[in-house]
Write a protein that binds this DNA or RNA. Structure first.
Length: 354
DNA sequence: AAAGCGGCTCGTTCAAGCAG
DNA sequence: CTGCTTGAACGAGCCGCTTT
């Protein structure tokens, strides 16, 4: 049984082999230069032979004034190794691959292994693209050991309970770039209809439109106000029926003159400046309260019947909001004909009084 | 027609709760 | 305890509009 679970996990984790491009690393890390002086950088989810994170720090070791660079290599089920650079040990006047010190590990180099955790304790800043399937666990470990970090993640993680709480508490925040990012993927990855390509060398690529960086290092973007243009008016900004807030479907539509609570898309967190707005909570909009066993007809994207029924819209009762806010209907109450929309997340925010 | 880009779904899974 | 219902959490993407 245990072996089966392990195998299954290993298989799932295979979808975590995405290699970040050096241009994306440069573009983000240029905003953090001041943080690296005399610091120990640890890349704990990278294959140093391939990792552009390793490459970036090797090339920029002197420019950033690093004290030490460490990377652990991961092996599926056998002892691995770590690489370190502590400076120009060859004395040839520059830091490069000749200065790399390779040391065997007793364990497999997994970021959760005791050996890797010992290295983590020594490190100042962790920079990597961790496996998304272990994202919460990964962040939890960084928080536990009180480490600074700059890592790649996915906007979906904004809605993870633990991650959202950390953002709300101003313990972590999003980095500079968010949105599209393209990654090299191993050959065994299957082609897809969208966001997939194979280049002239046969290398496979995948991209995603919801990639973002997570960090707890200060960056100037965090202190910049989101520039707003629109003015509040009742007709364009309907309130939720059972929660004292207005609904907003696009970040750019946030009105500049509304003092109450607003439900905004989670992508707002890309622009979050804690001095401009405060985060009240994460909400789920949509669905509806209805008594058990009230028959609901499931509708398609055009609001037409699919011929299917449910007795409890996807098993989810809504918490706080009126679902009838210009959303495409997803359910129709068979008895009353009332329409209900589907479910999605909103961040509830309020303007800071200046 | 293709590429860029902003914004955000909904079906599955599993645990907790509850009635019998 | 068993079996069913309820509810919370999740997603290395997707969609549709705009620009080139």
């Amino acid at each position: 049984m245990v072996a089966n679970v392990t195998l299954k996990k290993a298989k799932q984790n295979k979808q975590d082999e995405f290699y970040t491009q050096i241009k994306d690393i440069e573009q983000e890390l240029k905003h953090y230069k001041k943080h690296f002086l005399r610091k120990i950088v640890f890349c704990n989810c990278d294959d140093p032979e391939w990792s552009n994170f390793w490459k970036y720090f090797e090339l920029n070791f002197d420019y950033l004034g690093l004290k030490k660079l460490i990377s652990t290599h991961y092996e599926e089920n056998k002892p691995s190794y770590k690489l370190e650079i502590i400076g120009d040990v060859t004395g040839d006047g520059k830091v490069d691959y000749k200065d790399i010190i390779k040391t065997p590990l007793k364990q497999n180099g997994d970021f959760r292994s005791p050996e890797a955790i010992e290295i983590l304790k020594e490190a100042d800043i962790v920079v990597t693209n961790p496996p998304f399937s272990l994202f919460r666990e990964y962040i939890a470990q960084l928080m536990k050991y009180n480490k600074k970090f700059i890592i790649i993640g996915n906007q979906n993680a904004y809605t993870y309970k633990e991650i959202f709480t950390l953002i709300q508490q101003n313990k972590i925040w999003s980095g500079n770039k968010s949105g599209d990012m393209e990654f090299k993927v191993p050959d065994y990855y299957e082609p897809r209809a969208t966001r997939y390509r194979q280049d002239e060398t046969g290398q496979k690529w995948r991209s995603m439109g919801n990639i973002c960086w997570f960090t707890n290092l200060d960056i100037s973007k965090r202190h910049e106000n989101l520039i707003l243009y629109k003015q509040y008016n009742e007709s364009e900004y309907p309130s939720y029926e059972n929660y004292d807030a207005i609904n907003i479907d696009k970040v750019t539509d946030i009105p500049l003159d509304y003092d109450g609570v607003m439900g905004v898309p989670i992508t707002y967190l890309d622009k979050y400046n804690p001095k401009q707005f405060e985060i009240i909570e994460l909400g789920i909009v949509g669905s509806c309260t209805f008594t058990n066993n009230r028959k609901m007809e499931i509708l398609d994207k055009n609001g037409l019947s699919t011929g299917k029924f449910t007795y409890n819209a996807k098993g989810t009762l809504y918490k706080k909001y009126n679902p009838m806010l210009d959303k495409k209907p997803a359910f129709k109450d068979v008895e009353t004909g009332e329409l209900y929309s589907s479910i999605y997340a909103r961040v509830l925010i309020r303007k800071r009084s200046s």
